[in-house]
Design a protein around this nucleic acid. Structure first.
Length: 193
DNA sequence: GCTCGGATCTAC
DNA sequence: TAGATCCGAGCA
């Protein structure tokens, strides 16, 4: 039986996104569904988005959609894209600064699922039933339907690789995507530069 | 108001 | 490589 761990503290998230994103690789994500079912997955791929960054939703300042990004760290920023998919982000940094970390892929193979169930931002939201209703929820509380904890095994920094982010037009010069080299759950598209 | 295009994914 | 298919943002 696996012992339930304490969630990551809010102070973990109140650091720059470029620090939090690689630090989240190897951490666990717990999802508690309405029927009480709990799933645990390992974060294997993240991307950092800073306010001073044309690829970031917060680049043009605060709007109704992105206002969660400007709030306190450790809350979920969920948005809808391409008419069909949701993306799940964790707000990072100081309050009033619009930045976040996009969770791109999770590995649920420890729970017996195929690695392909959550190997992409849209797919993981579909698998975990994350939608707009989850926008703004806390991720550092025991009672949340989603919580993040330290990983079961601490990752060696050697196993973490970085690359430019995926699916953006501007800001490609930054290698602000991090992923676990050994994981088969890393999103399939464009693994390298 | 209306238009444009996107931090995606799947199948053709 | 296109198509599905919505909504925020920007501009008029």
């Amino acid at each position: 039986m696996q012992r339930q761990q304490h969630p990551l503290k809010q102070s973990f998230f109140s650091r720059p996104a470029t620090i939090v994103a690689p630090a989240l690789i190897g951490c666990s994500l717990f999802r508690k569904f309405d029927d009480g079912t709990i799933l645990r997955g390992t974060i294997v791929e993240t991307e950092a988005y800073l306010q001073d960054d044309p690829a970031c939703h917060a680049y043009r300042g605060i709007t109704k959609r992105n206002q969660v990004m400007f709030g306190a760290a450790g809350f979920a920023y969920v948005y809808f894209i391409y008419g069909m998919y949701f993306c799940f982000n964790v707000v990072t940094g100081k309050e009033d600064e619009g930045e976040a970390v996009l969770i791109r892929a999770l590995d649920f193979s420890d729970e017996g699922y195929d690695v392909k169930v959550a190997n992409g931002p849209g797919k993981l939201c579909n698998f975990l039933q994350i939608d707009k209703m989850m926008n703004g929820i806390s991720l550092f509380s025991d009672t949340s339907s989603i919580a993040l904890t330290e990983g079961v095994a601490r990752m060696r920094s050697l196993e973490i690789e970085s690359s430019p982010r995926i699916g953006i037009r501007l800001g490609k010069e930054h290698a602000w995507r991090w992923f676990l080299r050994s994981s088969r759950a890393v999103s399939a598209t464009k693994r390298t530069c």
